[in-house]
């Protein structure tokens, strides 16, 4: 929790009103929520359960507890993410918007110079090109074939190396010579990792190799759109420092640091869009 003015781009802070709005980003792995109200913001995160609705209800309960606000203080809710399709907010005004639009608006409000976003989530990865004037999506590329280039791939790799997801990124940063991982298919990569381990390759080098292989895939997505700075890394994997380093190495450009944990960028964008899509965009474009 904190003050919106501490995380939002100074040029855009006043575009956010005082009323209460909630953005819920129900991803395939984790559910994220942001409540904005009276110049403050509150965040919550929880693993996504079997159904999206209980996850959303749980997040809202936690937000209300943390913020001291009540449902009656909330003017509108936006649902986004993988689980958005099955959300029901009862009588509270609500809208459902894709995570692509929400990440674009969220990252724009966090840094109005954002023009390219890499969003790696649990089950997909996206490259998004953003109009810096208003945060609207200009173009996007999304993998939708398999777990390649996604958090699921990293999760499986961590499991095979017997370390946690959190440690996978840290381990990668210790690498002396990243291993060459050619397979992006989780199934084939598994045998490749086992072979590397059998050869005695260090865990750090393998971890770095995994992240670089994923970053190469991201690079190909970005190339389709064209890379325009500033580049922001968002989504569930954005806390992985090894992944961030690999993206920066492979793309040859630094990612812009945000003042809010970028895992909440989509939920923040959803909360902002809950103000009214048109209003949010019109306000933003005025800046």
């Amino acid at each position: 929790m904190g003050l919106l003015k501490d995380i939002i781009d100074p040029e855009l802070t006043e575009r956010i009103g005082n009323d209460g709005f909630i953005g819920l980003d129900i991803g395939s792995t984790t559910g994220k929520a942001v409540l904005i109200s009276g110049g403050e913001y509150f965040t919550e995160i929880t693993p996504t359960g079997v159904y999206a609705q209980p996850t959303a209800d749980k997040l809202m309960e936690k937000l209300f507890k943390k913020s001291g606000r009540r449902l009656s203080d909330i003017r509108a809710v936006t649902g986004t993410g993988y689980g958005r399709v099955s959300l029901d907010f009862g009588r509270t005004p609500s809208r459902i918007i894709t995570e692509i639009s929400c990440h674009a608006i969220g990252c724009h409000y966090l840094n109005r110079n954002t023009q390219t976003i890499v969003d790696i989530g649990g089950q997909d990865s996206k490259a998004i090109k953003v109009d810096a004037r208003n945060g609207k999506v200009i173009d996007f590329v999304m993998n939708d074939k398999c777990a390649a280039g996604t958090g699921r791939f990293l999760e499986k790799a961590a499991y095979l190396m017997d370390i946690s997801m959190q440690d996978l990124g840290k381990e990668a940063l210790k690498a002396e010579k990243p291993a060459d991982i050619s397979s992006q298919c989780v199934v084939f990569a598994e045998s490749e990792l086992i072979s590397l381990r059998a050869k005695g390759e260090s865990r750090a080098n393998i971890a770095a190799g995994i992240h670089i292989a994923t970053a190469r895939r991201i690079k190909n997505q970005i190339n389709r759109l064209g890379l325009s700075p500033e580049l922001v890394f968002s989504g569930g994997v954005s806390n992985n420092h090894g992944m961030r380093a690999a993206i920066e190495d492979v793309l040859g450009i630094k990612t812009t640091a945000l003042r809010l944990d970028a895992i909440f960028a989509g939920a923040l964008g959803a909360a902002i869009l809950a103000q009214g899509n048109e209003a949010a965009l019109a306000n933003a474009s005025a800046g």
Binding site: Y82, I100, S101, Q123, D124, M142
Partner: peptide, 26 residues
């Protein structure tokens, strides 16, 4: 959009792409 002739609802990713594309044009 790449779809299939498999029986069943389209994948979440395909719907996300369609929705996001139309949001982009709105």
């Amino acid at each position: 959009i790449e779809g299939t002739f498999q029986v069943g609802p389209p994948s979440g990713q395909v719907l996300t792409r369609i929705n996001a594309f139309i949001e982009m044009l709105a």
